[in-house]
Design a protein around this nucleic acid. Structure first.
Lengths: 146, 146
DNA sequence: GACATTTATATTGCGCGATAAATTATCGAG
DNA sequence: CTCGATAATTTATCGCGCAATATAAATGTC
């Protein structure tokens, strides 16, 4: 007998994978005006929330390895949006700071969350609820990955 | 006054983005045994479901551009899992067919969906419900992206 | 029927993201 | 001071994803 395997469309993992792409496609034209990619936008949001964070803090907040964040920050540095310098009191640590241009860019980003919410077709409470549910999924997966 | 921007963790888009990564990390060790990446696994699932599909059909099912699928299929061809040949009756079209090794690999993949479901911490009905919800999100986003 | 235009399909060219593994450098405990 | 732990970078890989492009078929035009 032949045991069955699901089609991609039947899988939860695939719906998440496909939704992430769809999200990216909605973001793309919005972020192009800022000269940012989506991961770069996430880094900027992180720094707009709290400037001067270390590489480790940024990677922790975004659930990515520091070896992913370093090149991201370098591109943002090359774009003139952040600077990277070693912490004086602990020379192991590198802190990312917004430049004037980096702070200024914030204004141009203010309307993006509203645009995205509109694109989701959800009202705010529904979006928050779904976010928390997907976040719970991530937490379970992270526990399982260890 | 300073208008506010959310932290990444507050955003639905970020929960989806992070969940996709977490999913990938759970899949990775399982798929390594098959010598596949996650997108390659999706292509194989598609062909296991229906062999001999065209590049266009595969891309449509996975919501990706054909320019993403072509190199994916080439890698699977290089791995000896599929063949690619032009349709005789319509020379624009390329069809992907499983090799014997490609069909055989299916057996080794049978237990993966169960492993993943386990890692989600959800029971089947809950997983299906969440899948449909995330799928609805994707649909809304696709409508908005046009 | 021949030629041009539009439509459908797939491939090429390019850059970014993501990670693992190895390296460098610094800190803190004893 | 030494050694283990911590932090970030470098290295090395490489796959993905798409825009732009090329090719083939279908359709329209005279």
């Amino acid at each position: 007998m032949t045991e069955s395997l699901p089609r991609p469309a039947e899988l939860l993992c695939f719906s998440v994978y496909a939704a992430a792409h769809a999200m990216n496609r909605v973001y793309k034209p919005l972020l192009e005006r800022l000269g940012l990619t989506y991961p770069q936008y996430l880094v900027m949001l992180t720094l707009w929330d709290e400037d001067g964070q270390t590489v480790g803090q940024v990677s922790e907040r975004l659930f990515l390895e520091s070896s992913t964040i370093t090149p991201l920050l370098k591109r943002l540095e090359a774009a003139g949006l952040v600077t990277r310098e070693r912490d004086r009191t602990d020379e192991r640590v590198v802190r990312a700071r917004l430049t004037e241009a980096g702070r200024a860019l914030r204004e141009k980003a203010l309307d993006i969350p509203g645009c995205i919410l509109g694109a989701t077709g959800l009202d705010l409470p529904a979006a928050v609820r779904l976010r928390d549910e997907v976040d719970g999924l991530r937490k379970s997966l992270e526990r399982a990955a260890d």
